[in-house]
Design a protein around this nucleic acid. Sequence first.
DNA 1: AATGAATGAGCATTCATTCAT
DNA 2: AATGAATGAATGCTCATTCAT
Lengths: 207, 207, 207, 207
Amino acid sequence: MPRVTAAAKEEHRRRLLDTAAEEFGAKGYAGARIDDISVAAGFARSTIYNYFDSKEALFSAVLADFAERSIAAAGQIPEDGSVRSRLLALAQADASVIAERETFAKVAIREILTQPADVARALWPNRAVDPFDERLRAILRDGQESGEIRRDRSVEEMARLLAALANGLLLEHWLPDSPIAINDIPHLLVEHFLEGMGIGSSVAEDR
Amino acid sequence: MPRVTAAAKEEHRRRLLDTAAEEFGAKGYAGARIDDISVAAGFARSTIYNYFDSKEALFSAVLADFAERSIAAAGQIPEDGSVRSRLLALAQADASVIAERETFAKVAIREILTQPADVARALWPNRAVDPFDERLRAILRDGQESGEIRRDRSVEEMARLLAALANGLLLEHWLPDSPIAINDIPHLLVEHFLEGMGIGSSVAEDR
Amino acid sequence: MPRVTAAAKEEHRRRLLDTAAEEFGAKGYAGARIDDISVAAGFARSTIYNYFDSKEALFSAVLADFAERSIAAAGQIPEDGSVRSRLLALAQADASVIAERETFAKVAIREILTQPADVARALWPNRAVDPFDERLRAILRDGQESGEIRRDRSVEEMARLLAALANGLLLEHWLPDSPIAINDIPHLLVEHFLEGMGIGSSVAEDR
Amino acid sequence: MPRVTAAAKEEHRRRLLDTAAEEFGAKGYAGARIDDISVAAGFARSTIYNYFDSKEALFSAVLADFAERSIAAAGQIPEDGSVRSRLLALAQADASVIAERETFAKVAIREILTQPADVARALWPNRAVDPFDERLRAILRDGQESGEIRRDRSVEEMARLLAALANGLLLEHWLPDSPIAINDIPHLLVEHFLEGMGIGSSVAEDR
DNA sequence: AATGAATGAGCATTCATTCAT
DNA sequence: AATGAATGAATGCTCATTCAT
């Protein structure tokens, strides 16, 4: 009994988590109703409280689930090749995870923006220990050693810039009538990150 | 009666608008209470309804006010100088407008992300006619002519990339404990936009 | 100046009264908005308060105006002829007054039903002094003398019965999809009032 | 759990319905506060929403409950005897149902008068299928066969006349200081319906 | 573990009325 | 007399959460 029950419970949790991701994605944090999530997952109104303490805890759990997928995806990219190709692989892995849960991802960004700093800190993965970020920094470090990446910037700074550009492109993609498809993002991101829009000589001059 | 009252009414509207920007910024759209805004502006609970039809209309009005400031700021930057300096001026103008209403800006982005496409379209300034964007495209066009900017991308595409990077940096800045100050953004933005993080030769090789 | 102004004021009052009758008729007492009435009559929101103290006072005034028309109409019917013809004339006079202000009449009945007894008493014309009722009782009295009307009932009782039947027919007419037109009412009313639906013999038997 | 809870829920619904009938009766539809009803029935403010979707739905439910009582009462009158006695029984059954919920009945009539035709149609029992009306028509039909009732009118027309008179008497009874008691109505109604106030010969003459 | 009835805190909006001009 | 800005009282409804079964 214990094993069966545990498995069933795990399956129930999954179902609730998936349904919650959909509902939060469709209606936003405030708009989603916890009753609806529970019912849509095939349970009674209040059953969800046997799995999650509160609406906020549920949201955090969906967020954590999302982060796990992201980390898992990052873990599978190859560790060799050019910086460009490795960055592209990383970006594509991330994009594919987001594409899978796109509406929720939008809501997640939105909610993190809203929360006061302390809550946000709890929700947002800590950069220092984030495996995804870790992987990115490794690539950049290797690039500096191999000469593919500028050495006049710290790895941390560049990682933040790349993350910023990635999030910015995502935002652009989400604006109404955007011409940017989610699958365009990895390429746009890597290319722009590496090259910029200026022309070599002008850089030298201006500095 | 007419002149005095009209001026007073305008001043009252301003007061309500400013207070609303603060409240929305502090508590988000859903969290802000329209009663509180009215009272905080020095009126009775319901007086605000003499100026704005609904909470949503009030939010739109604050948004429009914000957009106006942004446009006004963009209108004052010089029209000559290097692409780099002109972009920097534009970015600084925008940053200073945002800095003035920073908490509201955060909420504004958040809300636009939330709205369904049709509502968002109504709220978000139309790119094609946005004076700010117009100005940006003019700079890029001049840059292409003078050879400061790559010619293998359309002006529209580059404008979108720059906007994406700007929004992404803003997002980074808003993450808890971010080391990026709002005043760092213009410089980071322009530099990265023009130069990228790669090294010239690697570009040539990879292509 | 005094005469002109007084005439103008009187005209304004009329305009407000007529507009109020329409608005009350269309939306009911609670549903009608005093602002709308004032504006629809061509004035500013609050101007109506220069003519009527409150919404309730306005309603009473419209009611009084209505009663006046009714009384005036009753005053013009001939005082001779058969009971049947005189009753018919009275009923037709009343029906035509009601037809003129039909929606308001409906609302008036409705509101009188709602009010607590003391308010209703103030609104509803006092039977004992109501010229309309007075006229009706005169006809019935004449009928008793001439033998056209039963003598085993008091005039008051019969007047009440006729009024009840009249109001009941009006109600029927106002029910959705009623086949009874307002112009049918006088004839139906008089005929039924005089004759009943039973057959002579059965009356005798049963008593 | 199920059986006990279901019974309890039914009892709670009843309590809310009864309380609502009182409150609506005392204060009218607009005047009654849904919170008060819930609290007066012994629940928290919002509990009533577990039973009825909205104020309007609650009102309709009370109305339906009222109609059910009326139908049930009509179902119990005897099917033989003179027309007079059967009509009297029917009228008394109806009067006793109304007497039980008199204040609500008043409000119900009032509200039906107020509603636009489509809403009223939904609220008001359809004549064609109304068991009460059905019963009335059966009595009249029998009366025409037995010669107790005039044959020169259609059953439908007479049924409407009787209903009109009944409603009119009710209205009279509800006017302030009316001498008509609710228990007088059945007798007045039947007698007047059958006989009219005219005298046989005058009818003959006039025709 | 699942249920669902009960709860209560929370909130935008309406509108008659007042009053200074 | 006319105006219109300001007012404040009043209320239906939502939804996360609890708890007894």
